[in-house]
C-alpha cells in the first residue's frame, strides 16, 4: 500500500469528542479483556470461593452460635460466614483495584501513553472499578445461591435485595478512599502487592468476616470502628439475616457511618493522591516500577 493512501487519512480534520461514558466503557472492556486472558486465574478464583463456602458450611456444624446470636446475627454461623465471603470481592475491589491499575499500567509501560492523551486517568479508574464491580456481583450472586442451596437461613426478597444493592454501593463508596490512598502509596513506594495484601487481611480480620467483632478485646475493637467495612458488613448481615430494609434503625445508623467515612475520606484521599502524582511527575518516576 502506498504512502499516498495513508496520507489521505490525515487530510480531514475531525474534531469530535468521545463521550465520557463511552471512554469509561472502553476502559472497562480493556480491563475485562486483559483479565480474561488469564483464564486460569479466573477459574482459580471461582474454585477457591466455592471451596471456601463449603469449608464454612462444614465448620458451622461444630460451632455453637451463641456468640453470633448474642451479637445480633441470628442462629446460623453458616449464614454469618457466607455473607462475609459473598461481599469479600467488593472489599478487594474497592481496596485494591486502583492500586492494581496503577501497578499494572506501570508494569505494562502504558501509564505514560495514557497520560499523554487528553483523557484523565479518572476514566481508567472508573472503568476498572466498574469491571471489578460487575465481576464481584457475579460472585455475590453465585455465593448467595450456593448458600441458599446448602440451606443458609438468609432472607432474600425484593426488599432485602434492593437494600443489598444500596448497601454494596455504599460499601464501595466508603472503602474507595482507602483504595485511592493506597494507590498513591504505590506511586510513591512502588511496592504494591504487600500494602494491598495487608489491607485486605487487616480488613478481613478487624471487620469480622469470620467471627463477630464482639469477640475482640475492647482495645482491638477500637480498630474495627475505624474501618468502614465493619459497618457495611454489619448492615448487610443484619438485613439479609432478619429480612429488614434500609429503614431499620440499626442499618440506618450503619449507613450514616458509611456516608461520614465517604465524606471525610474523599477529600483527604484525593489530596494525598494529587500530591504524590505531581511529585511523581516532577521526579520523573511515573513510568518506573
Amino acid at each position: 500500500m502506498s504512502v499516498e493512501e495513508a496520507l489521505e487519512m490525515f487530510k480531514s480534520k475531525v474534531s469530535g469528542q468521545v463521550p465520557f461514558r463511552e471512554k469509561v466503557l472502553a476502559s472497562m472492556i480493556r480491563r475485562a479483556k486483559i483479565r480474561l486472558s488469564y483464564k486460569t486465574w479466573i477459574i482459580f478464583d471461582f474454585a477457591n470461593t466455592f471451596f471456601m463456602v463449603l469449608t464454612y458450611f462444614l465448620l458451622a456444624f461444630i460451632i455453637t452460635p451463641e456468640d453470633i446470636s448474642r451479637a445480633g446475627y441470628g442462629p446460623s454461623y453458616f449464614a454469618f460466614a457466607l455473607i462475609g465471603i459473598a461481599i469479600s470481592h467488593y472489599v478487594t475491589a474497592s481496596l485494591r483495584s486502583l492500586s492494581m491499575t496503577i501497578r499494572l499500567e506501570q508494569f505494562y509501560g502504558t501509564i505514560e501513553s495514557i497520560l499523554s492523551t487528553p483523557t484523565s486517568f479518572i476514566v481508567l479508574f472508573l472503568g476498572d472499578i466498574l469491571y471489578f464491580f460487575l465481576y464481584s456481583t457475579i460472585f455475590l450472586v453465585l455465593i448467595l445461591w450456593l448458600g441458599l442451596f446448602l440451606g443458609a437461613p438468609i432472607i432474600l426478597n425484593l426488599d432485602t435485595a434492593l437494600t443489598l444493592c444500596v448497601l454494596i454501593v455504599l460499601l464501595m463508596l466508603s472503602n474507595l478512599p482507602i483504595g485511592i490512598a493506597s494507590a498513591a502509596m504505590i506511586l510513591k513506594f512502588k511496592q504494591g502487592n504487600p500494602i494491598g495484601w495487608a489491607l485486605t487481611w487487616i480488613n478481613q480480620f478487624f471487620a469480622g468476616t469470620f467471627f463477630p467483632i464482639t469477640l475482640l478485646p475492647t482495645e482491638l475493637r477500637a480498630i474495627s470502628f475505624l474501618l468502614p467495612l465493619t459497618f457495611s458488613l454489619d448492615a448487610i448481615r443484619y438485613s439479609l439475616i432478619w429480612g429488614v430494609n434500609l429503614l431499620h434503625p440499626r442499618i440506618l445508623s450503619d449507613v450514616i457511618y458509611m456516608v461520614i467515612y465517604a465524606i471525610i475520606g474523599y477529600p483527604i484521599a484525593l489530596k494525598i493522591f494529587n500530591i504524590v502524582y505531581d511529585d511523581a511527575r516532577k521526579r520523573g518516576e511515573l513510568g518506573t516500577y
Binding site: 465448620l59 461444630i62 460451632i63 455453637t64 452460635p65 456468640d67 454461623y77 480480620f205 467471627f211 469477640l215
Partner: peptide, 10 residues
C-alpha cells in the same frame, strides 16, 4: 482469625 473462630466452636 482461628483463635477467635475457636471461641465459637463447641
Amino acid at each position: 482469625i482461628y483463635y477467635f473462630v475457636g471461641f465459637l466452636v463447641s
